[in-house]
Simulated scan of single mutants.
Amino acid sequence: MFLLISYDIADDKRLPKVAKLMERYGKRVQYSVFECLLSTSQLEELQGKLRRLIEVTRDSVRFYRLCEDCCQDITIIGDGEVTHDEEFFIA
Rank of each mutant, 00 (worst) to 15 (best):
D8V: 03
D8G: 07
D8L: 03
I9Q: 07
I9W: 06
I9E: 02
A10R: 05
A10Q: 10
D11G: 13
D11K: 08
D12P: 05
D12K: 12
K13Y: 08
K13C: 05
K13L: 08
K13P: 00
R14D: 04
R14M: 10
R14E: 06
R14Y: 05
R14T: 12
L15T: 04
L15P: 01
L15A: 07
L15I: 03
P16H: 02
P16R: 06
P16W: 02
P16M: 09
K17V: 01
K17N: 11
V18C: 11
K20Q: 10
K20I: 09
K20M: 03
K20R: 13
L21K: 05
L21W: 01
M22Q: 01
M22K: 03
E23M: 11
E23Q: 13
E23T: 09
E23P: 00
E23V: 00
R24H: 11
Y25M: 02
Y25L: 02
G26F: 01
G26H: 02
K27W: 10
R28D: 08
R28V: 10
R28I: 12
R28H: 07
R28F: 08
V29H: 03
V29Q: 02
Q30N: 14
Q30F: 08
Q30C: 08
Q30P: 09
Q30I: 08
Q30L: 12
Y31G: 07
S32I: 12
S32Y: 13
S32W: 12
V33Y: 05
V33L: 15
V33A: 08
V33C: 12
V33P: 05
V33F: 10
F34C: 07
F34I: 06
F34L: 09
E35H: 12
E35Y: 05
E35P: 05
C36Y: 09
C36F: 02
C36N: 04
C36G: 02
L37F: 05
L37K: 02
L38D: 03
L38S: 04
S39R: 14
S41L: 13
S41Q: 15
Q42W: 10
Q42E: 15
L43V: 08
E44P: 00
E44H: 15
E44D: 13
E44A: 15
E44G: 05
E44I: 14
E45C: 12
E45T: 14
E45I: 12
E45F: 11
L46E: 06
L46W: 09
L46P: 07
